[in-house]
Amino acid sequence: MSKAFGFVAYGGPERQEFLDRPVPVPGPGQLLIAVHAAGVNPADWKVRQGLFGTAQPTPRVLGLEAAGVVQVLGEGVTGLVVGDPVFGPTPGGAFAEHTLLESDNAAQVPDDVSFAQAATLPVAAATAYDAVEQLALTPGQVLLVLGVAGGVGSAAAQIAVARGVKVLGTASDQSREYVASLGATQIAYGEGVAGRVKAAAPGGVDGILDLIGGDDVRSAAAALRPGGRLVSTVDPVAAVELGGAFVKRRNSGEVLTALAALVANGGLDPHVSETFTLDRAAEAMAAVESGHARGKCVVEIR
C-alpha cells in the first residue's frame, strides 16, 4: 500500500484525511515515481472545494505537481530509465508516497536542482513561462504584471527579466522589497494604478500579464501602447474585450526542461518558503488556503 493525503468528499478542510491506496500501476506512456516532494497550490483547495467541478469520484489524492524517482516505466516510454529523477504535473495526486506522471509532460531534474525546487515548477512557473512566451516581448521592452507577488507573477517576472525585459508589477506596499528581489519595480494596487504605471513608464508598456482580472485589468489596459499585447490567466472575457488573449498552456516536458535550466543557472528562484512532511500536509494546505503564504510551500515525502 501507498500512503497519501486527500479528501473523501468535496467541501472544506474537514473533508481531508490520510488515505491508504494500492501503489498505482502506470499505463502506456506513464511513469510510476516514488515521490520526494510535491508543490502546494491554491488550485489544490479549489479542487477540494469542487470549484472546478465535482465529476471526479472521491476519495481523491491532493496535489498537482510532483518530483521523485522513476520506479516503473509504462509501455512505450523512451528516453528514461528506472532510477531517473523526474518531475511534472500529475493526474494521480502528488501528496503521496507514489504517483503517476505522463512521460510527455515530465522532465528530468538537473543535478543542481533539488526535488523541492523542481516540485514547484509544473503549475505556476509553467503557466508563467507559457504566458511570457505568448507575450513574445524583446529585450528593452516593458512588461506590466498584475499581481506580481503571487506564484505565477513571481516566476513570470524572473523569466521576463532573464530575457532582458523591464518588469513592473502591481503588489501591496508590504511586498515592495520582495518584488524588487524579483528584479521588478513595484506599483501599488488600487485606484489610480494606471497613473502610477504611467509615471513609471511614461511611454506606456509593451505587454500586460493579467493575473487578477476584472476592473484591475480594465484599468491597467490604458497603459498599453498601440500594438502592445495582453495575456490573462484568469479572465478570458476581459482579455478578449481588451484585444488580448487567454493564456495558451502547453503542458510539455520541453517547458519544464527550460524552467529547470533557469533554476540551475540562477535565473529563476522558486522561492520555497516553507516545507512540510507528509504527516503535516493539512498544515501545508492551510498555509496556502489562508492566502498569506509568500513563495511556494512544499510537502516533502522522502
Rank of each mutant, 00 (worst) to 15 (best):
1 M>E: 02
3 K>T: 15
5 F>K: 03
6 G>W: 10
9 A>I: 07
10 Y>A: 06
11 G>S: 11
12 G>M: 02
12 G>V: 11
14 E>C: 12
21 R>G: 01
30 Q>E: 15
35 V>P: 04
38 A>Q: 05
39 G>I: 04
40 V>H: 05
41 N>A: 05
45 W>E: 11
46 K>S: 13
54 T>C: 08
54 T>K: 09
56 Q>W: 12
57 P>V: 11
68 G>L: 07
72 V>L: 05
73 L>A: 10
73 L>E: 00
76 G>F: 04
83 G>E: 01
84 D>S: 06
87 F>H: 06
93 G>A: 10
94 A>E: 06
96 A>W: 00
99 T>G: 04
105 N>H: 14
107 A>I: 09
109 V>I: 15
113 V>G: 03
121 L>N: 14
128 A>M: 08
129 Y>A: 12
131 A>S: 12
136 A>C: 12
138 T>C: 11
139 P>K: 14
144 L>Y: 01
147 G>W: 07
151 G>V: 08
154 S>C: 00
154 S>E: 00
155 A>E: 02
161 V>P: 03
161 V>L: 03
163 R>G: 09
164 G>H: 03
171 A>V: 02
176 R>N: 05
177 E>A: 08
178 Y>G: 06
181 S>H: 00
187 I>M: 00
187 I>S: 04
188 A>V: 13
195 G>N: 04
203 G>T: 00
213 G>M: 00
214 G>T: 00
215 D>K: 12
219 S>F: 09
228 G>P: 06
241 E>T: 05
247 V>D: 02
247 V>M: 01
248 K>I: 03
250 R>S: 15
260 A>H: 10
262 L>C: 13
263 V>H: 10
270 P>N: 05
272 V>R: 06
272 V>D: 02
276 F>Y: 14
276 F>N: 07
279 D>Y: 14
291 G>C: 12
292 H>T: 10
